[in-house]
Design a protein around this nucleic acid. Structure first.
Lengths: 241, 241
DNA sequence: ATGCGACTATTGTCGTATAAATCAGCCGCA
DNA sequence: TGCGGCTGATTTATACGACAATAGTCGCAT
């Protein structure tokens, strides 16, 4: 039932993801996979994809290779390209996470993600308390200041909240924790619609200030507890909906 | 100083990573990048890579595209391919992590990794205590049994230890925690040489048994504490060297 | 001196051709 | 009939060659 692509299809694809045809294909295929479009029907062959989207097989192959690198598919001669079980997907790849949250959003997924945050961020705060430098403290306080400004309507509450949490992850001085900057930013940003619907949603400034203070005082235990309270509140909000 | 490839170079590349030419190139380039070979000199152009390794530009391009997908490089016309700052690398990609640990191993990296584990695994144990099913308990006990067998020389201690920890991550029933299975397995396996050099290295069976018992009894707090002790010990071992 | 345009190096895209892998089905033999 | 190898078809893997698009760079003209 696939018709030959017309000019508008091609044009849409060409500008789909800013960059180039390959990235457009990557985005299109990635979204299709995470939304489960190929759970029943088999994944199309390279030739079919190329024809259906009006691009060359080279472009298709490079997009499929990127999906392979992210763990979404695996390709073997004669057998074709097959979608991997979701357990093999690299959930910490920003693209994969974005596709999941944008296209397959669910409260369950949001809950599971915050269960991860409650492991990561309190420990990151504890590490930040130990290893931060002046620059980190400045960034954390800047984030806090932006949250206060947002409270008064002079800044974006989400961006401010994100900036605060990212500054702490960075201050941990541990590349594995720093890695979560992208993950947390992506997830917070895509889940904003949900959390906003839930309430007027002004983040708890005193709790955030408590974290910042504990870090500045190099009190790792207090920082851990304070951060745990922040994310614990979010979790309760989600669970108790 | 790059000479034209000879037949043995090509043959070596062809069988380098089991799969195919593209994966061989991916592995070669990935290792070169994480070892910092291109920190001073610029990253070669596609044409240069293709010629230097005796493969076509198609293969080169697909390998570079996979590196792009993992965040190691970024390519723009006329400017060429440039290595991204290591903060942009996807450290939770099994390939990237393996390259890092195999080729750039350091005690510092091992310490930072276990700082991550001490955040993840205790919380995973707590979740496992809440959400495990019979199958999970069986897997955890199987891992424990293998560790005891290894103690007596009847099994591989590392494999047994890994199996135990992976079973708990899986039992958390949270895909984000399950994601760390590959990461933990990769890191433990590649760091075995170091940990073995450090001591006769028989894992602390009673501590592991305590975790298993707490999970089986659905005592989340106890499971968290017990797991934290296990990894805390590892961290002390590393820090106090 | 400065701005504009031509040049050029590099990735982006395309099409085609051939190789290799592997599965299904056929054919022959016992 | 049953089994095993052979053959063909399908799909990815690899290769090559060409041109387009893009973006620095350099030089020229004003």
């Amino acid at each position: 039932m696939e018709s030959l692509p017309n000019d508008s299809d091609i044009a849409a694809n060409r500008h789909e993801l800013g960059r180039n045809l390959t990235h457009g294909m990557l985005d299109t295929l990635g979204r299709a996979i995470v939304t489960g479009r190929y759970e029943q029907r088999p994944f199309p062959t390279e030739a079919e994809i190329a024809k259906a989207h009006g691009v060359s097989r080279s472009v298709t192959r490079e997009a499929v290779k990127m999906l392979t690198a992210k763990g979404l598919v695996s390709a073997r001669p004669r057998q074709g390209t097959v979608v991997q079980p979701s357990g093999n997907w690299n959930l910490f790849d920003p693209d994969v996470l974005r596709w999941l949250l944008e296209r397959k959003f669910s409260v369950e997924l949001l809950r599971q993600f915050n269960q991860l945050r409650i492991a990561i961020e309190p420990e990151a705060a504890a590490l930040a308390a130990q290893f931060h430098d002046a620059e980190d403290i400045a960034a954390i306080h800047a984030g806090l200041a932006r949250m206060e400004a947002a409270e008064a309507g002079n800044d974006d509450p989400l961006d401010a909240d994100i900036a605060f949490h990212l500054a702490i992850l960075r201050a941990s001085k541990n590349p594995f924790y720093a890695q979560f900057q992208m993950v947390v930013a992506t997830a917070l940003r895509t889940s904003i619609r949900f959390t906003n619907r839930m309430r007027g949603r002004s983040a708890n400034i005193p709790d955030h200030a408590a974290v910042a203070d504990a870090i500045a005082l190099r009190d790792a235990a207090a920082a851990r507890i304070a951060m745990r309270r922040i994310i614990g509140d979010v979790l309760e909000l989600i669970a108790g909906d």
